[in-house]
Design a binder for these strands. Structure first.
Length: 613
RNA sequence: GGAGCCGUGGUGUAGUCAGGUUAACACGCCGGCCUGUCAAGCCGGAGAUCGCGGGUUCAAAUCCCGUCGGUUCCGCCA
């Protein structure tokens, strides 16, 4: 990251200032800018300009003093020469890093041998006539410069300084552009942006709620929304046809690099649609977004996998398909094997599955041992590696394998000399092991993929999953997800076999978001609640308002929601959503800047009729 | 709830494994010199009870126990 101009803003700033005269304006002792620092070019030579900004660096040569003045658009060098303006030079002597200045001067071409090719403004400089200190600054606790080698707590404690760095400014500019283009696109497709409550009602299912006590009704609580799900469905009942919102959501769960307690969703819902309508529109939206914001053409439509296929081929419902390394089932080859590990797994109804490691050729024993260790760490009983070695295979299992088995493996996997196949035997738990190993291999061995952004739809998720702890079925997505049409007959009999009209969008192995067609038939909704173990009374108590609304002519509808933070994180090439959120929280949910969360005054508790336990 | 890693002048790190002089280096900061630098340069200076508490030891940044904070992951969470 350099002090390049923020290309995202460049055009906007240029337009803003076009047509302005070069004259400066007085306003209470400091002069308002006529130009942004980072926009000055040789075409401005000869102009008198006024700049407002922060001192990035000061280089004092005893005679001449150079100031790099920074604003949102970038840097420009201001030259304070005592022979040109003794006043400006005298003022510049007092100046320190991060002082806020107003500088008036004339743009001139730099002497040829002092052009700075590393700066967009490097061909010009401003000869200062007047330098006004608008505000001084303490020495900042860390240096305001590209890159962020500073401890994160300190950055967060002084976030307003951290946000002065170009990395952060660029990330937040990108974020602003993304939300702007989402709005542009959706509004052009007849979506209405409608806000929904932040103080709302707690709902069962899903994540732990954040809760806000009610003063007017002591002992009662609002919950902050985990998503605007129910409201957007009510908006469909209301006939708005197409809704969207850049919505803040709250979930009181443990944090991760890609999870904050409050986060932002691009949330939308449409009436009279099938999955196809939603997915193809979203293909268009992302194509528009990446084209307009990043100048990247995405190949659309995005490829699709059913959940079943994804699990079979990648062992996960959010595959990063840039790495190849698809899994195959090799069970057929080992039906009669003497190799006990495989045979006993097969006899128990398990399978032998595995994949060829991309980018690994004739590895050292140490690397293979590393793979086995990783497999164990992921919970596998073991891992069998096989390396093509001439006509045969090098493998710990080699001596137990027959010639047809060996040949079969080589053929089925298309193993070439020195290539490595990993095999594991077992049941469904293999998915976690193999997909974990696949990521491990991707990071370590696979060649860098050509594709920067790899989107995949994953569809037809199971409707329910079994919660062992609570001994009941739970919704895989949420309780309003419509079962696939073909599953309606056996919902109650074989719930785990039922799939739903659902779809997730995966980008580079990150779950960007997901949605579904919703149930619009109150009777079917009741059946699903029944399977979830929600009694008529509970359902009425929790979602009665929705069920009631559904008695007044709900349209078929469906929608989707995307994690804006994750999207921007990937577009900006960052490793954590904290890097694309202006004021994020630490892993323990605190904000070192404000000190939140904090105790409140006893009076506040008394007013709410609350007492700590 | 669990596991790993990190915590040393303002900042980033070295030193910790193998305890032992005055805790080192770079950046920043302060002062001086310096009219073309842009990682300015040169000279000088200040600045750290090594996250906190306890223990072992003649001696602890270093070893042990606990604790706090940060971070990554599992659980949890769409």
């Amino acid at each position: 990251m350099e002090w390049a101009p923020l290309s995202l803003l460049e055009e906007r700033i240029t337009n803003l200032l076009r047509g302005r005269t070069g004259r400066t304006m007085k306003d209470g002792g400091w002069e308002k800018r006529t130009h942004y620092c980072g926009t000055l070019r040789t075409s401005d030579v000869g102009r008198e300009v006024v700049l407002n900004g922060w001192v990035q660096t000061r280089r004092d040569h005893g005679g001449v003093i150079f100031l790099d003045l920074r604003d949102i658009s970038g840097l420009v060098q201001v030259v304070c020469n005592p022979e040109v303006s003794p006043e400006a030079h005298a003022a510049a002597r007092q100046v320190r890093s991060e002082y806020v200045l107003s500088c008036r001067g004339v743009v001139r071409a730099r002497p040829e041998d002092s052009v700075n090719p590393r700066l967009p403004t490097g061909e010009v400089e401003v000869m200062a006539e007047k330098v006004t200190v608008i505000n001084s600054s303490l020495t900042p606790p860390f240096e305001i410069e590209p890159g962020s080698g500073v401890e994160e707590t300190l950055r967060l404690r002084y976030r307003y300084l951290d946000l002065r760095r170009p990395d952060m400014q660029e990330a937040l500019l990108l974020r602003s552009r993304v939300t702007q283009e989402v709005r542009n696109f959706l509004i052009s497709r007849n979506f209405l942006e409608i806000e929904t409550p932040i103080l709302t009602k707690s709902t069962p299912e899903g994540a732990r709620d954040f809760v806000a006590p009610s003063r007017l009704q002591p002992g009662k609580f609002y919950a902050l929304p985990q998503s605007p799900q129910l409201f957007k469905q009510l908006l469909m009942v209301a006939g708005f046809d197409r809704y969207f919102q850049i919505a803040r959501c709250f979930r009181d769960e443990d944090l991760r690099a890609d999870r904050q307690p409050e986060f932002t969703q691009i949330d939308l819902e449409m009436s009279f649609v099938e999955p196809e309508d939603v997915m193809s529109l979203m293909d268009e939206m992302f194509a528009h977004l990446f084209r307009s914001v990043l100048g990247v053409e995405l190949p659309v439509p995005f490829p699709r996998l059913t959940w079943r296929e994804a699990m079979e081929r990648y062992g996960t419902d959010r595959p990063d398909r840039r790495w190849g390394m698809e899994m195959q089932d090799y069970s057929r080859l080992f039906r009669e094997t003497e190799f006990k590990v495989f045979r006993s797994a097969l006899e128990k109804g398990g399978r032998v599955r595995g994949f060829k490691v991309a980018g690994m050729r004739s590895p050292a024993r140490r690397e293979l041992d590393g793979l086995v260790d990783e497999a164990r760490r992921l919970g596998a009983g073991g891992l069998v590696w096989m390396v093509r070695d001439g006509e045969g295979l090098k493998s710990p299992a080699a001596k137990f394998l027959s010639l047809p088995e060996t040949e079969g493996v080589v053929r089925a996997a298309g193993l070439e000399e020195g290539e490595v196949l990993l095999l594991a035997a077992g049941g469904e738990e293999l998915n976690a092991v193999l997909s974990g190993l696949r990521s491990y291999c991707a990071q370590r061995y696979a060649p860098r993929p050509d594709e920067r952004f790899s989107f995949t739809w994953v569809t037809d998720f199971p409707l329910f999953e079994w919660d062992e702890e609570e001994r009941r079925y739970k919704s895989n997505h949420h309780p309003f997800t419509a079962p696939s049409a073909g599953c309606l007959e056996y919902l109650e009999e074989r719930p785990l076999e039922a799939t739903s009209d659902s779809y997730d969008l995966v980008l580079n192995g990150v779950e960007l978001g997901g949605g579904s067609i919703r149930i619009h038939d109150p009777e079917l909704q009741r059946r699903v609640f029944g399977i979830l173990g929600l009694s008529e009374e509970e359902a009425a108590e929790k979602f009665g308002f929705l069920l009631e609304a559904f008695r007044y002519g709900p349209p078929p509808h469906g929608g989707i929601a995307f994690g804006l933070d994750r999207l921007v994180m990937i577009m900006a090439g960052r490793e954590s959503i904290r890097e694309v959120i202006a004021f994020p929280k630490t892993q323990s949910g605190s904000d070192p800047l404000t000190g939140a969360p904090d105790v409140v005054y006893p009076e506040q508790l008394r007013e709410l009729r609350l007492r700590p336990i």
